[in-house]
Design a protein around this nucleic acid. Sequence first.
DNA 1: TCAATGTTAATGCAATTGCATTAAAAACAG
DNA 2: CTGTTTTTAATGCAATTGCATTAACATTGA
Lengths: 149, 149
Amino acid sequence: MQEPRPEPSASVIRAWGRLIRAERTVVGRIEAELKSAGFPSLHWYDVLLELKRGPEGRLTPREIEEAVLFEQYNLSRLLDRMEKEGLVRRVPFPGDKRRQLIEITEEGKALQWRMWSVYGAAINRFISAKLTDKEAGQLSALLLKLVQE
Amino acid sequence: MQEPRPEPSASVIRAWGRLIRAERTVVGRIEAELKSAGFPSLHWYDVLLELKRGPEGRLTPREIEEAVLFEQYNLSRLLDRMEKEGLVRRVPFPGDKRRQLIEITEEGKALQWRMWSVYGAAINRFISAKLTDKEAGQLSALLLKLVQE
DNA sequence: TCAATGTTAATGCAATTGCATTAAAAACAG
DNA sequence: CTGTTTTTAATGCAATTGCATTAACATTGA
């Protein structure tokens, strides 16, 4: 016998819907800015930024996956494309031939930098203009609760 | 001469990162539940729900697009697939041969209903369990500000 | 009226993503 | 050790998405 399942509350359903919509809207706006400036997508930026932050500009694919929540196979092919563009380089992982290190190139760093000038401006336009810093802090705290555990 | 562009504040950048991450995480978890129950993706659900709410279970593709923020060409092909599964039906739009009405079928309504039992439970597990109703309300309000104007 | 413009939906083709599997190497268990 | 299991990354192929364009119709304005 199955217990009746309680419906999610109206306020939870509303929050969920708005989360989807806000994300789609803001990502769409920011991607449009990047594209119209001739830059690749946010996914590329995310990888470049993570690498730049990593020790000596290097991370394993696993670490990148974990940082940006991509699927293994998607990241593998994204790195193919980025390598072909000269933005990253695959180097051997010392002491483990299964793994590898992805290293950002100077060209990759330069692209990240140039993209940030457009990306940062877009964040200003589409987020800073809509929320105070205090509200941004509240939003962060709430979203953090959502992903925890 | 170019004015120096102010950097987005740290709290805004953090909120933006968490918005992306929270959305990806929760969508991923919910999609996994749907898939493991043998159901199609959230996109299908979204379309079915919008149609079910529409007058006599009908909306134009334009209206669906607007409601769920899909691209025109993606929706066009999604509707192809859904029609092939017998979930929706394309019917002529009276008085305008360019447009059409998409009508949900009984089978489509039944699928939406069955999906909701899994989807609602997933929302409970992944959202209700993490936020109080009050917090959900605050989150909604903040996300709304983000998409406004 | 009718040419020009705008709107709606579909489609060919390229790029990306998803799924399942594979290959290679490392870690582990007896 | 040696066979088994686990981890890491790549890949063939199908499904989906993105981009650019097209076709069909409606609307507008001279």
